[in-house]
């Protein structure tokens, strides 16, 4: 009498695994470039956070306006890291301290700029979606307290070759 329910349970488990496997095979695999373009990111924002078409275009303008600022910061970070590497190589403590101070300053500037950019995008969402967007993105950007997703960009230590 007990055997029949056990057989049904095992068959149900097999059916669940089959459903999982068939669905995973049927779904298109994610490419490494998923979301790499601005259009793809805007489409995701629109879908995920309920942006209106006008809000989407406004966010596109905000991103386009922020891009040069982001690029300048990226170049400044590259220069500061190169200066630190050469200071480490030369063994000059004053140059090393100056390079570390510059990197710390850039961290602060970039964190503020990134947060401001996120807030300007969130301003075009409903309050609930904006809160969700900020909570999601703030944990992903570098040098933000509670960041969890992106790799850390800590400067190379003095002991590193």
């Amino acid at each position: 009498m007990l055997r029949r329910p056990v057989v049904i349970f095992i068959l149900a488990l097999v059916a669940a695994l089959a459903g999982y496997g068939i669905t995973r095979l049927a779904l298109r695999p994610l490419s490494p470039q998923t979301g790499a373009t601005t259009d793809a990111q805007l489409a995701w924002l629109e879908r995920e956070f309920g942006l209106s078409p006008e809000a989407r275009e406004e966010v596109r303008r905000i991103k386009a306006a922020y891009a040069p600022i982001c690029e300048d910061h990226c170049i400044a970070i590259g220069r500061a890291e190169a200066a630190r590497k050469s200071a480490l190589a030369s063994g000059d403590p004053a140059a090393l301290a100056a390079a570390d101070a510059e990197l710390a300053r850039l961290k602060e500037v970039c964190a503020e700029a990134t947060l401001g950019h996120l807030r300007s995008i969130a301003a075009h969402m409903s309050p609930a979606q904006a809160q969700r967007f900020l909570a999601l993105m703030q944990s992903r950007v570098a040098h933000h307290p509670g960041r969890s997703g992106a790799p850390d960009l800590a400067p190379p230590s003095a002991s590193a070759p």
């Binding site: 979301g35 961290k107 992106a150």
Partner: peptide
């Protein structure tokens, strides 16, 4: 699948606005 897709988009978006991640 949707969770993984969403995570990809979040990561790509973060990388597009954060100069440190861009530099990395």
């Amino acid at each position: 699948h949707e969770r993984e897709r969403s995570e990809r988009y979040v990561s790509a978006f973060a990388r597009s606005i954060d100069p440190w991640l861009m530099h990395a």
